[in-house]
Amino acid sequence: MLKAYKFRLYPTEIQKAYFANCFGCARFVYNRMLNDKIEHYKETNQMLKNTPAQYKNEFPFLKDVDSLALANAQQNLEKAYKNFFRDKSVGFPKFKSKHKSNDSYTTNNQGGNIRIEDNKIKLPKIGFVKIRQHRDFDGLIKSCTISMTKTGKYFISILVEQEVPEWVPAEHKIGIDLGISDFAVTTNDADESVKHANPKCLYRSEQKVKKAQRALSRKQKGSKNREKARLVLAKKHEKIVNQRKDFLHKLSDQITDENQVIVIETLRSSNMMKNHKLAKAIGDVSWSEFCRQLAYKAEWKGGTLIKADRFYPSSQICSACGQRDGKKALHIRAWTCPECGTTHDRDINASRNLLVLAK
Rank of each mutant, 00 (worst) to 15 (best):
R310A: 09
A69S: 14
P11C: 03
L231D: 12
S104M: 11
F23G: 00
T149V: 05
A350M: 05
I121D: 10
K142D: 14
G341V: 04
K125Q: 14
L159W: 15
Q260D: 11
V232P: 00
A215T: 05
Q74M: 12
K6L: 09
K63R: 12
D64C: 02
N349L: 06
Q46V: 01
D191L: 04
P124I: 13
D253Q: 10
P124E: 12
K297D: 08
Q110T: 15
V241A: 14
G139E: 11
N109S: 11
K236N: 03
I121N: 04
G139W: 13
A73N: 10
L9A: 07
Q243L: 11
N113Q: 09
N225V: 11
R244A: 07
F61A: 05
T151P: 08
Q213A: 12
P199Y: 08
A170T: 00
D36S: 13
D177A: 07
K98S: 12
S319W: 05
S217E: 11
I180R: 02
L267N: 03
N102W: 08
P93I: 04
M272Q: 13
K327D: 08
C321Q: 03
A229R: 03
S104F: 15
E58F: 09
W287T: 00
K211M: 02
E265C: 02
V285Q: 04
H276S: 07
V129Q: 10
K130C: 11
N109V: 04
D284R: 00
G152T: 06
S104R: 06
T256N: 06
E43R: 10
A295W: 02
N113I: 14
N102V: 10
N108G: 03
S269I: 15
D347N: 01
S181G: 00
D177G: 01
F183K: 03
Q133W: 04
Q213Y: 09
A279P: 05
L77Y: 03
H99E: 13
V29N: 09
E166M: 13
F290H: 01
R135S: 06
Q46K: 15
K130I: 12
D325N: 15
L278A: 02
L77N: 02
F155W: 12
L159T: 14
K88G: 00
Q15S: 06
L251W: 09
P338V: 14
V209P: 03
I156Y: 14
S288N: 07
Y203W: 05
R230T: 06
P169N: 12
A298E: 12
A215Q: 14
D309Q: 10
D284L: 01
L267M: 13
L248S: 03
T12C: 10
K42P: 03
D309T: 06
E13D: 14
K125I: 08
F28V: 02
I116C: 10
G127C: 10
I262G: 02
V65W: 06
A308H: 03
K130H: 15
D118M: 08
Y296F: 13
I176L: 13
V29H: 11
N35M: 09
